[in-house]
Design a protein around this nucleic acid. Sequence first.
RNA 1: GCUCAAGUGGCGGAAUUGGUAGACGCGCUGGAUUCAAAAUCCAGUUCUUUCGGGAGUGUGGGUUCGAUUCCCACCUUGAGUACCA
Length: 1127
Amino acid sequence: MSYDHKRIEKDWQQYWAKNQTFKASNNSDKPKYYVLDMFPYPSGAGLHVGHPLGYIASDIYARYKRHKGFNVLHPQGYDSFGLPAEQYAIQTGQHPAKTTEENIATYRRQLDRIGFSFDWSREVRTSSPEYYKWTQWIFIQLFNSWYNKDSDKAEDISTLEAIFEAEGNKKVNAVCDEEIASFTAAAWKKFSKKKKQEILLQYRLTFLSDTEVNWCPALGTVLANDEIVNGVSERGGHAVVRKKMTQWSMRISAYSQRLLDGLQHIDWPQPLKDSQTNWIGRSQGAMVSFKVLPNDSTDEKGALSFKTIEEIKTLRLNTSKASSMLWDVLRKKKGSVKFRQQYILGDFITDFVSFNKKTIVEFSGKEDEIARANFYATEGYSVVYITEEEILENIDKVLSKINNGIQFPKIAEIKKVAKKKVKKEAAKIIDVFTTRPDTIFGVSFMTLAPEHELVSQITTAKQQKAVTAYVEATAKRSERDRMADVKTISGVFTGAYAEHPFTGEKVQIWIGDYVLASYGTGAVMAVPCGDQRDYDFAKHFDIDIPNIFEGVDISEAAHEDKNGTKIANSDFLNGLPYKKAMKTIIYELEKKKIGYGKINYRLRDAVFSRQRYWGEPFPVFYKDGMPQMIDTKHLPIALPEVEKYLPTEDGKPPLGNATDWAWDTKANKVVSNDKIDNKSVFALELNTMPGWAGSSWYFNRYMDSQNSEEFASKEALDYWQDVDLYIGGSEHATGHLLYARFWQKFLFDKGIVPVDEFAKKLINQGMITGTSAFAYRYSLDYSVSYKAEDGRKVNLVLKDDFFISIGTLNKKSGNAYDLDGLFEKAEAILIEGLKKKNSSEIQIEFHQEILAPIHADVSFVNTSDELDIEAFKNWREEHKNAEFITEENGTFKVGREVEKMSKSKYNVVSPDAICEEYGADSLRLFEMFLGPLEQSKPWKTSGISGVLSFLKKLWKLYHSGDDGAFFISDEKANKDELKTLHKTIKKVDEDIANFSFNTSVSSFMIAVNELTALKCNKREILEGLIVLISPYAPHIAEELWSKLGHKDSIATAEFPVFEASHLVESSKNYPISFNGKMRFTLELPLDMSKDDIEKTVLAHEKTKEQLQGREPKKVIVVPGKIVNIVG
RNA sequence: GCUCAAGUGGCGGAAUUGGUAGACGCGCUGGAUUCAAAAUCCAGUUCUUUCGGGAGUGUGGGUUCGAUUCCCACCUUGAGUACCA
């Protein structure tokens, strides 16, 4: 009976499904073990052989742990919200849920075929309402929480309200918006309900704010930082621009330090930890305040000159094209909204104003913007800023922006502006963050980001023009441009000066785009002698470079090394090394109240809104412009049906197309938009959650995935605790893996989960790349000219394509293949043809020889790299008549190159085809055998024959009867057989502990080869052997196990126990080396003494031969290991 | 630029508390079986050689009786990051 993988694998897969062999129990006497894979996004293309690599590894581990007596949780599910299904919906109109459902079915079929031991009863799908009910629930928990820095954890918002009630917000130490005005308990009590909500919103862990976001116009959505690669969208490579929008954000920054600290307690790959550390970007330093000196000439920054009625009339006539376009639309606005153009309000002329809606529409970038904004704010107007470009680009969007502004007046902005007004009246201060406050005496200028709010206020009249031009130029430059030329130094002097806080000297204030508005305070104190960028800037603009380092030459470059140098020319810091100087200066700054020690993080709060359809809807409605959470007992808020999946015409997200998307607070259900009255029925949030929402907590849901009452029961959470082993790709380092850690810490703070890190150990599996096949096309152009009978000269241009086999190609020297034979042939054909035309003078000219590699589908290539020419010809019309120049033996060899596995490169190999031809066990073994799990390695189908023949040999060991019948002897095993078995047990135990699966496979091969040589068919050996192999090749293992007479699945059979006694040897084959080079070996007893070994070796004739009469200088004997003779 | 990882036969890779480099497999070569092919089995396969041997783990140094393994410098490749003050 021969090995029939198809029958065996089908039978056992059915058996496992029927008996629920891998269903994990939530209570067991066994110790628990949780093995998790990163769940897949079910794409339309299905799986290729690269995808299951990690799943196979985790499955082997899970099965191994079951053999070792653990209660194993090994679940699987789908991260099924996402862009591709939505893009497909936009193109075809097919509902993303349907596409997703179909793709999941394909995935499931493919996964089942590989024989994974998943507990499918716990499957989750992020897009199913039963699941996202709890994603919404977590969102509400975040909304109802604030971060208390004193207790260093998230707390319920009610504790914050209690504090406000009792003592106002002065003593509150929270992670919150930076600009919150302080208030007393009495003031708090007097605030309106709305005002209270506004204030609380600034403290919540998920909050609404106007943030600069990465807007991708092509995708019509906002992207997170980690979704942008090289300045373009990760998906599709579309341009990304900065844009201000009202968005939900997650206050992940509150957890910066804890996310950093937590890394020390988890066993994750160092490169991954490094990249998270890098992403969080902690830097220790100090905040320092610099006072801006008043400008010498104060007249030019004063109020606006008043304009006469005549002037205004002229203004109205001379409006720009964009302005008149907008006015044309605004004047027609229906209902209560009535706009006026160029209307005087106080000292200012508004662009457009609506009195009854208290809304002003202004073109951005007015010179007196701050003064205006202050005035408008104090008068209670909300301002919508627009630009000419926006109008010209899409006037409908501008209109919807204005509508939005009317509907939801921007509270935050009014507040900020109001505060700015207060600030403006006081002395202007530039705050900077620096990691080197110890170099403060080396400050010779300051640089502000062009976007810095003070720029417009401090610039002198003389510099105004240059500064405005520079600010505008920078704003226009895309992120990509700015990134592309890092080398160019640019900047402009503002004309203003700051006062050095210690020396009192005047320090020039510049603006420059090397300072980023989004990091620190958007301003730096420049120390050219200690920072290369400041140095370059100073050199470029000829600014002083004072040296404050003892005995360091700074004539060529800045001195950035902080250790081993002492500070000089720095008053009280003179002679101090870095660490002491840091301490001293921070002490001085704090004493003078002009600064303080501070730790800064690069990690930004995460934008949580997406303008998409296929994502979790927010459980949020808007009342009086303020977001309100829907009571958790009414969850889930199901995704509404829409007719179109694109954004609406007025620029709202796709959910704006839904007709039933309003919340009835009396009936507590979603109702038709018609019913919105803003009394009891309100508009629901139109954004959806980002892709990372559902994946940030799914590992907890698996513990109790069918629970409809709770996120997961306390018992389940307490039992499973956390993931013991998590396997997935390294591409999620700063996305999923950071967000998931953040949510876990939050849930831990709230007492919902028992641990604050969700995965103890994580392994990044490498990528399996494809091996593309190439046929080389030789393109030949030749022109023929001849004189026809009538005397006319005729030119013919002909073209021929040939494919050349790589072997033939390589045999030829030089860079081009010698095509003499072909030319002759072509010539003959032509001449033959032309003769018929009775031409006399024929000239043939060969023009071009182009050699181009063409991808050939890897399925046309056999194990010896030979192309199936017929299949290749039929594949593409243009190759149908091409000629093939083959090897001498008539075969056609393709060229090979390793590339990423992708459809467009025709190198994708599907696991289905492999399972069909070689079987799932072969696939599993081969993927492991390819190389170390964490390494990326190329797939080459030809290699799989090795593991298949291993399985056949294994099968034969158990079928040594006549005609290959199953035959096992109950005889006692001999020493050699036991040695082979126990050697293998030891190796496999070690390998699995080190996740070195590739070497276990080779030790199985060695074991089977040895046992075959020993003609071993003994139960004592073969029962143990098959349990060893079962995690790797479970189907054949089950089959042989049942043939051995077992009624139960092999899944929980006890793993054989290693006994060292079987490996004890009595002698050792010593390598005898001379000067470290091994020359021969010598079999000696292991209990021989050092001296005896030395004597025996030196007496050996081969030693004498090697020494050729010389006396050995030294003899090194390491018993049991080696003998080395130094001559 | 910075950070990290890795460089070993024709190919995937094995060997590190420093101790026989190339396990295991692919491919290739020869042979057996076969009318033939597939499958299977046997032998060989780092390079070089005057068949005694010699050289050899990216390059150049160093430590050591002994280095793929440890140290220093450099080169190459891959990944991440990008003016982070």
